[in-house]
Structure formats: C-alpha cells, structure tokens
Design a binder for these strands. Structure first.
Lengths: 222, 222
DNA sequence: TAGATTGTTAATCGATTAACAATC
DNA sequence: TAGATTGTTAATCGATTAACAATC
C-alpha cells in the first residue's frame, strides 16, 4: 500500500506494519488512561514484545512523531495514529447476516469503542427482521443497498451463508462499500478499488493443531 | 517451528507456510468432492492465487508428495495434509465463556466439520449453565479443569471477559491444555510448551479502515 | 555538558520466486 | 521419445534488526 508521509516522501507501507498500528494505539490509550505523558520507543516496544528499532522503523513510514533525543508524547501520538488508521472520525459499519456470528459481532462492544459504530444489521429471515441488537434493529436484506447508499457507509461485514456471499458482496460494493470483512470461507471477487479481508476462523484452529502436535514431544519426534 | 520431514531432514517451517496448509487442504477437499483425481502444483496454486513454486516449496518441507513428472494424487494428498496439520483424528475442543462470541463459535458448524468437535462449553453465569448449544450442555466454569483433565483435551477457546482471561487460561493450562485460542484483547502469559494464538478482531477492522482510506484517492493524496 | 533517544540508513535475516535437472 | 511436472537449489525480494549521527 503506497502512501505519502507528512514530509512528502512516498513509501510502500508493508502489511506487517499496518497490522502493528492498532497494537501501538491500544497500548498508548492504556498509557494515556494511566496518565503517562511520555514514552520512549524502547518502553513501548518492550511492552509489545517487539524491537524498538522496528517500532521506529514503522513510525518512520509516516515521517516520525518526535525529534531526536525526545521520547514520544502520548497525547500527540494517540490522535496521530488514529488519523493514520483512519478512525479520527467514526467509521460506521453494517453487518450483512444476523446468524450466530453476525449476532455475536453485533454484540461486540469493542468495535464501537474503537471507532466503528454499527449502523445496521440485515437478514433475509423474516423472523429475525424487527428484532433489536444493542439498539440496532435488524432490517430486511432487501434494504441493505439503499441503506448503504443513503448513509455513505464504507465498511461492510459479511456473515451470510456461503452460497449467497458473492451476491450480497456484489450488492454492497454496488452500493458504495469499499471495504469488506469476509467471514464466509469463500474467496470474494471484487474490483481493485475494494479491499476484501478474509477472516478464515478455522485456519486459526488448524495452526494451533499443527503446532501443539509438535511441541512438547521429544526433539527427535517433531 | 522445527520439524523432521518424512525423509528424516530437519527444517524450520515458517508460519507463513503453516497458514497455507489449511488453504491447500480446503481446495483439495473441494476437488476430491468434484471427483478430481490428479492436480498439478500449477493448477492448485493458480486457484489459490499463489505461485506454483511457492506451493512446491511449502510441500518440500514435508518431503514432497509426488515424484518428478507426476502431478499430485488428490486422494493421497488430502490424508497426508490432514496428518501434517494434526487432524487425522478428531481434535476435541472446549470453549470457556458462553457469552455472545463463545456462543457464536459454539454454533459454528465448520469447526466440527474440519475435525474439531466441541466437547464442552463453560460459563460462570448460573442462568446460562444447563442450556444447550447444538447438543452441548453449558457447564459451570468450576468444572472446566476436571473436564479437560478427564478427557485429555488439548485445545481451549478463550471467550471470557477480559478481567478473568488470565485466570481461566492458567486453569486450562494446569489441566493440560497445550493450545489456547485467545479472543480476549489481552496478552495471555503461558509457559513455553503452550501455544497461544491471539485473535484480535478489532485489528481486522482497523486494517480495512487504513487501506480503504487510501485507495480510490488520487495518487497524490494517498 | 553527558546521557538518552530519535530518525534514518545499512546489514542481516527470512520468505518468495525462478530456474532447472531429474524423471515420469 | 517429447511434453509435463516434480523436487530442489539458487536468486531475488522484502521485512526485521543493528548501528549511529543528530540533537534534545
């Protein structure tokens, strides 16, 4: 992903760096709440179990946030990271599919806390339509596209059954969504200007299985 | 992660390779169901949007699954991958915490299908205890450790509230669990022989936010 | 000033891709 | 045999870590 930092230089920010930004922000918010004013790259990195040079290297993509010799100011870094991640203003989301997973995600308060208020939940099931989840009414799937269009929503969560995943995705994309969080175990086809993030839950269990099988055994059997 | 392949050579298998194994298996099962007997590295790789040489390189860690000149046999590859991942036999799991997320995961049929039958769900809430989720009764959290010990369960899913996460984790580890799938936004401390996989859901949304903010803009503004 | 700490480049490490001999 | 395709090593690419001048 190519960006221009605050000094006008152009960089390709690695995915690995992007993934660390939320971790930095999380820790910094905790420090802020604890009343901490300054933090060095070493302190912050150590608490996240990474190298200080990696943290500084990551920050360097965005032009850096301090001056040589001075540690980072927590109160400056938090809003700066929010702005870089794109959550300086609330980023509303919708959930398509109010099954078990959709329901669980709709109930997950952390998303709202982190800047992603849930504006709508949609399902085809007439029995579910009309019910409320944390104050959000489940609406018929047929209203999804108009809802997205009218409110200019950019991020959609896909928790529908496998066989309608692509159809619902197409619907959301046509309505203006540019980011899709796909929880169905299927590859979603999307145009280049749309970012699809696949969350394959079962992969997590398989990686655990692979590793636990091989740890704790005598070295020769691994 | 160091392993010994089927020819006695010792390797460190990269995490990136481990993560791809479930994807290979998934595609191969689909091919198997479609009655396909043979598949080349190119065919399989193309369908997964990766390079054929990467697939062969991945397979090479495990000694390879064919001979030069011959494509892979789907019916040989599927059980071989299952065995490598560690799901040639069912790997039972328990879920600690029957809140929204624990409930959703307990209802996720894919885990069972992929070889991870759910044996128990546990919660402290007396109102939840006794209820059934897909035939599995919710039990009191106080029974968790004994349950794990008696049935020799190796994998535990952690969907309890933040403030008790470490306590419940310690409990499971003491009872014999060697793999923890942590859905709480906290770093779990565990001994070396225990693998902890952190599933930080909000990170997914933040990565989407970061990228969608910068795509579709005129090049100069990214 | 002396110690601390950043920004930034260079060195290292690891993962991906290419190339090709072996062989079916 | 000729074309296809693997296993395997070498080349390339990218990410992490180290080093250090600048400077507070």
């Amino acid at each position: 992903m190519t960006i221009v930092n605050n000094r006008g230089k152009r960089f390709r920010v690695p995915d690995a760096t992007i993934k660390r930004l939320p971790l930095y922000l999380d820790k910094l918010i905790l420090l802020q709440q604890a009343g901490v004013q300054e933090v060095s790259s070493r302190q912050l990195a150590t608490s996240l179990d990474i190298k200080a040079s990696q943290l500084r290297h990551d920050f360097h993509y965005f032009g850096g946030f301090s001056k040589p010799g001075r540690p980072y100011l927590v109160d400056k870094l938090v809003p700066a990271l929010r702005e870089i991640i794109g959550i300086d203003e609330p980023v509303p989301i919708v959930i398509a599919g109010a099954g078990h997973l959709g329901n669980a995600l709709a109930n997950y308060r952390n998303f709202e806390r982190q800047g992603f208020p849930l504006l709508g939940v949609f399902d085809v099931d007439a029995d579910l339509v009309g019910r409320e989840i944390r104050g959000v009414t489940i609406r018929p799937m047929s209203e999804l596209a108009d809802f997205i269009r009218e409110r200019g929503i950019r991020l959609g969560v896909l928790t529908v059954p496998l066989d309608v995943a692509q159809i619902v995705a197409d619907d959301m994309i046509a309505a203006g969504v540019t980011g899709l969080w796909n929880f169905t175990p299927t590859e979603i086809k999307a145009p280049d200007h749309v970012i699809v993030r696949n969350e394959r839950l079962a992969v997590g269990l398989m990686c655990l299985s692979f590793k636990t099988k091989r740890i704790g055994m005598p070295e020769e059997m691994r």
